[in-house]
Amino acid sequence: MTDTTTTTLSVVTDEPTRLELFRSMLRIRRIEEEIARRYGEQRMRCPVHLSVGQEAAAVGTCSALRPTDQIVSTHRCHGHYLAKGGDLRAMIAELYGKATGCCGGRGGSMHLFDPAAGVLASVPIVGSNVPIGVGAALTAKQRRRPDVAVAFFGDGAFEEGVVHEAANFAGCHRLPMIFVLENNLYSVYTPVDQRQPARAGEQPMAGFAQTHGLAAEHADGNDVVAVHEAMGRAVVRARRGDGPSLLVVDTYRFLEHCGASDDDHLGYRPVGELATWRDRCPVAGTRAALRDAGLLDVATELAMESAIVREIDEAFAAADAAPYPAAHTAMEAVHA
């Protein structure tokens, strides 16, 4: 568990936590694989942005949070939502456009939220969620709550003015805020080096932290324990009033930007890049590490798998059986 009492910021991950990090990643992987498998049935009639390959970023960060901490996510929100404890059935139903979805079918896959789990909102306009997250951090400070707020954003969102404006605000007011930058090297099909200048130093995006008065953390985004510990340090600082942090995690998207297929044939990824990153799969890597450490045997993993599969089957069956929202409800809740 994350040690929040220590004054030095060493955060260690104990064995049960490491096992739980693995289970949570495996669960997200299986859920998104199932979405991918069923997407061709054309019954989830909304765009989906899968995070297969990026599970360690979602799980490593959200596992350091409490339900009362708020996260805001992006178009690629499934992993964040699930890792933070968002309700699986409400998510799958939302993808099917059903009345039982978390948005009652109004939002689709890019608008997932779950107040009970502290998933405040997901916003499909790039960068648009980040100041919303800062607003949650401001509220925690104003209401003297011990909560932190987290905004997920990508290397593309890093380019949006509003992200910098929001970070400046959080830095200025020393808010309990953590900016989690998932650098997966691409915005849609465009690599980051076509959109941003070459920057000196080993951590080219860390200058963002310095500019806006944030503490800087960095982790291998496919190493869930490293992400968890870096996030843990940021959370400790935020909770004790030491202000906001930036956490940069380097990771990689395996599937197409939007949709459920492979897209290597499009040729926008350098030859071999996908294979290199697949070799660094966060789920497989964690499994291997746990096996080597003697923490995960085959029977334990099989038990995990079958529980996950059962939960997924139930969620899809429930979504299938649920009603669509009735047309006459469309005008409800336009105004508060």
Binding site: C46, C103, G108, Y324, A327, A330
Partner: peptide
């Protein structure tokens, strides 16, 4: 278009 945002669900979008 009616006076509400575009809903995602097909049943709502069809009427929209």
């Amino acid at each position: 278009l009616p006076e509400h945002p575009t809903p995602s669900a097909r049943t709502l979008a069809e009427a929209y």
